[in-house]
Design a binder for these strands. Sequence first.
DNA 1: AGTTAATTCAACATAATCATTGAATGATGC
DNA 2: GCATCATTCAATGATTATGTTGAATTAACT
Lengths: 221, 221
Amino acid sequence: MSIRNPKQALFEQFAAVAKGLGNPQRLELIEQLAQGPRTVEALAAKLSLPVANVSQHLQAMRRAGLVTSERDGKFVRYQLADASVLAAFAAIRSVAERHSAEVERVVRGYFDRRDDMEPVSREELNALISEGLVTVIDVRPADEFALGHLPGALNVPLSQLEERLSDLQPDREIVAYCRGPWCVMSFEAVALLRKRGFQARRVEDGLPEWRAAGLPVETPL
Amino acid sequence: MSIRNPKQALFEQFAAVAKGLGNPQRLELIEQLAQGPRTVEALAAKLSLPVANVSQHLQAMRRAGLVTSERDGKFVRYQLADASVLAAFAAIRSVAERHSAEVERVVRGYFDRRDDMEPVSREELNALISEGLVTVIDVRPADEFALGHLPGALNVPLSQLEERLSDLQPDREIVAYCRGPWCVMSFEAVALLRKRGFQARRVEDGLPEWRAAGLPVETPL
DNA sequence: AGTTAATTCAACATAATCATTGAATGATGC
DNA sequence: GCATCATTCAATGATTATGTTGAATTAACT
């Protein structure tokens, strides 16, 4: 171990946190954990990765101070260490958004008709919900919905949207949301709904941001 | 390059940004560049690093979208890509600070009750061991114990202490040690033992200091 | 106590990152 | 053109990250 001055030690700590974020799988884990605490097994299933691999990533993230774990019966439940982790993720995302032509290209694929895809802001949606003017659908899988969702939201996982169109009132505007600003499910949901003649928009970000902003969340149990 | 869906491509971009921040030297470069544009040479002088090394770091950061460069006469001047880079740096730092603050808080919590925790000095413990008056337990994990420990010490990793209390004689004083003066495991061990009615103290420091003082160490093999 | 299931560990192969060296490039000024 | 200097490139070796496999732990249940 080499001799380090305090400043170098400090920067090594910072770098360790950044390294913890420096892997696409780990970022996906963070996106999942932003929805709520998860077991290793559940995360491995979500990402379609070997359990041991996920376990190692989670331990690396725990060493970096990004997540915490606690035993719950025969499971170990991981969760984000605190809100600053999501803030760091958002900051990273922001840098990528501004400077990556690749990101731009991918996003533009969904935003082709950008004018039509103008998102609803959190504040605007909160007002619309209070006045009962819109149908809010949560297009995430049912397990994520069960752990918390927007007040009054209807869970229609993207995979089932097509079959469940009849559950939706055709004369009300529909607002769709999913995991976060880069979650593509809400883009696809809005695209599908419009193709079927619905008036639909997406929320500018997802449940984690909504929760972080202190807006009301329905959490069963 | 493997086939990626749009989501994976996005997360790889985000991860690339985080990787660009995942090195202490690069973070120091960002700190310097936060003051204003700098040439490669100036940065190399500031960090006392080879110019070629700094040049490579800067190029890596440019690929990640963290900095931009422009030629200025015979110099190349680098600068931060935009304010979002500093925001990301601050977010990373915030995670690290909360993480280490947590550690600091825990340690301080143990040291606050110092009076109750009067430690045994090395010399005193050496005498107690010679006279066979105490049970010495090593609360480090088994692998560390295997590489050397105090003479006659019993390895009871902190995580197993609760279940192995029956291994300990209730009428003998117990002395616990671990890695060093800042290792909290022996604090926790003593706290637990006292709660269960044992007379217990901790050693003022750990095995490395014991060994450095020239006192006897049992090393298997 | 033994069994089962979830998680972690250990060991390995592969790949990426890092610092160092010396040579190559590109712009400047004589 | 030619020399000079800042920067970049290329090659090397050392270190660290990554994913895979199967075994070892751990806690709950019988």
